[in-house]
Simulated assay, not measured.
Amino acid sequence: MKKHRVTEAQVVTRMGEANRPTSRGEAVPWFCRVMLVLLVTLSLTLVGPVSAAKAADDAIRCPDRPIRYAFFESPVLFEAGKGLEKDLFDEIRARSGCRFETIVMPRVRIWNEFEAGHLDMTTTVLRTPEREKTLWVLDYLQLRNYLLVRKSDANRLAALQDFDKPGNALRIGVVRGYKYGLEYDAMLKKLAANGRVDEVVRSDQLFRMLKAGRISAMIATPLNYLSALTRNGMVDQVTILDWGGPSAASPRGLGLSKQSFTEAEARKWQALLDNMRRDGTILRLIKRYMKQPEANAMMLQSRQ
């Protein structure tokens, strides 16, 4: 594209043309057009500082020491140092520019370590009133829990409440320290009182127990069970039931210790996660492990 230099004489000429009568016989003063140009230029100039100020407001201030970040072993989410949560962590670390120290431990120990002030962050936290006493929970995806029942036992159940029927001795397995949603948790509390709940440290243990018939049911999300059932040769042995009610689908978030981060600092980490969602990064990472429909179902609704 050719560049044209505009001389002073041409400017004067054009200003003069601006004063010529319009088709309606009205003259448009040249200085009005000049003022309009100046106003547009000023507004565009202000966009840069405003954007820079907004970026400064959202900028994360890294602690002076490495952030203590805990993972827990779970199929697809985090296994042998790989998985969706590892991918999300790598993106969070790159965008924040902070230093991290990672550790892998059972879920129930993670909660104890937070209460003791020994951890700063962890992943895939389900928000509960108890956890919000010690954690800021920053949502970034949602998961839905389903009931997985051995087909040989499924005909004994017509509803979730049937687990608690007199004479029903079916056992269910759970991961110690997990929360599954209001309806499931209420049922588990009743069954635990009767000694019919088996607790394990890792969810992959539950799939093996279900296959061996040591338990009749377990609770899991598609992110866990889709690959685990195939890997354990159980696809045709299990009935999948959606009996958890509205609370079975719930946001999961990054947990930040309230001992380590202020509310204002937590908002900046939430802004980082929101940007990852808006620019498609979170969906892209989920699709490494899930097909498009399941990946879409895991995305949170847009935040304001």
Rank of each mutant, 00 (worst) to 15 (best):
Q205L: 14
E199L: 06
G213D: 14
G244S: 07
K165N: 05
R208P: 00
G167M: 03
Y184E: 12
L170Y: 11
D198K: 07
S250I: 15
A169R: 13
P222H: 02
V174H: 15
V197C: 06
G181C: 10
V197P: 10
Y225V: 00
L160Y: 06
L223C: 00
M218D: 12
G195N: 08
G195C: 07
D164Q: 08
S227D: 07
V235Y: 07
G213N: 09
G244Y: 03
L241R: 07
K189S: 15
T239Y: 04
I172Q: 11
A248K: 00
K179Y: 12
Q237T: 14
S203G: 09
G233Y: 10
A228Y: 05
R208A: 14
K189N: 11
V174A: 15
P246A: 15
L170F: 14
L191Y: 10
L241F: 11
K189M: 12
E199T: 04
Y180L: 09
G181D: 05
L160P: 02
A193T: 14
F207Y: 15
D162G: 10
A193S: 09
K189T: 15
A186D: 04
D185N: 10
A217R: 01
I219T: 05
A220L: 01
R208F: 02
A193V: 12
I172C: 11
K189G: 12
R252H: 13
A249V: 11
V174S: 15
L188S: 04
D185E: 13
Q161H: 12
K179I: 14
G245R: 00
R231C: 03
Q205H: 13
A249M: 14
I240A: 08
K190D: 12
A192Q: 14
K179P: 04
G181L: 06
E183Y: 08
G233Q: 08
K190P: 09
L191A: 12
S203W: 09
S227R: 02
K211M: 01
M234C: 02
D164I: 00
G213S: 10
V235P: 03
G253D: 01
L182K: 12
Q205A: 13
G167F: 00
Y225Q: 00
E183V: 15
G167I: 02
K211S: 08
T221G: 03
K165D: 02
D242K: 01
Y180G: 07
Q161R: 09
D236R: 08
Q161V: 04
L188Y: 03
S216A: 13
R171W: 11
Q237A: 10
R252K: 12
M234W: 01
L206Q: 07
Q161A: 15
A248T: 01
G253W: 00
S203P: 09
G253F: 01
S250M: 15
N168P: 05
I219P: 05
D242W: 00
R202M: 09
A220P: 02
Y178E: 08
G181E: 03
L170R: 06
G244I: 04
K211V: 02
K211T: 01
S247C: 01
R231L: 04
F207V: 08
K211W: 03
N232Y: 02
F207D: 05
L241S: 08
E183M: 10
Y180P: 06
A159T: 10
A228R: 03
R231Y: 04
E183Q: 13
L210H: 15
L182W: 11
N232C: 00
L182S: 07
R171C: 14
M218Y: 03
S216T: 11
V201W: 09
P222E: 02
L170G: 06
G173R: 04
L210W: 14
Q205R: 09
